[in-house]
Amino acid sequence: MYKLRLKSVSKSFGSTRVINNLSLEVETGEMVCLIGASGSGKSTLLRCINLLEPVDHGEIWLDDFDIAEPALDPDPIRKRIGLVFQSFNLFPHLSVLENITLAPCKVNGKSKKDAQDHAIELLERFGLADKAGTYPDHLSGGQQQRVAIVRTLAMQPELLLLDEITSALDPELVGEVLDVVRTLKAQQMTMVLATHEMAFAREAADRVCFLDHGSVVEIASPDQLFTQPAEARTREFLARLLAER
């Protein structure tokens, strides 16, 4: 069963076409990694799925519902789709606990008590229980990103979009954030993850999708894509990556 289906999606900023006639399916419980050079459209694609950017053409089906329909109110759809940003984007004026409970209280109408109980349960699960009262500026980058993930999980999303969530982190902090993603994968969370961490994509993804100039060049199992890419452009991209190492 598909959780998400993109059909011929296009998106332009001015005269630049960032997403070009892109189609992609993601099964329920599946984790798809998007790889590709900077500017290949990974981030924009995730923002389009979350309806932060309206698409120009094409359809985005969430379950059996085309959410790209322009007349739809995006708010009830967004709360079903979590998005974690490269730069964390925690709310600096709110404590960790308040960051997490804001949306459950104001969007889902949960009582403060229920929202806090759930938030603390999540924080405990990800080893952040002692940070509940702390403000984001006093956390390390890795802790901030883990809190950002927990903030998204508190809305109990059906689909989680992760936008280069380790790119802004010091190398020694990457591991703790990727561990969170591994945990989520073990819990069958449906995820689309844009990443530069090829080793992680290879280890954890169910399928890897190579994007170039806003379209899907190749999508395959990690083993196949990294060892026997079918497309010349995929081979070039991987060869360039290897050369940079």
């Binding site: 923002r47 979350n50 932060l52 995006p74 708010d75 009830p76 967004r78 709360k79 789709i81 979590g82 998005l83 940003f85 730069s87 984007n89 925690l90 709310f91 600096p92 004026h93 804001l102 949306a103 104001k106 969007v107 889902n108 950002a148 903030r151 998204t152 809305m155």
Partner: peptide
Amino acid sequence: ASQSAAARSLGLSESATMRYVVLPQAIR
């Protein structure tokens, strides 16, 4: 703008985003 984007992505409406996320930071 990334603050609004984060709030909207969580499902907060435009006015809730202004009230709970943007204004408190702006006034401070």
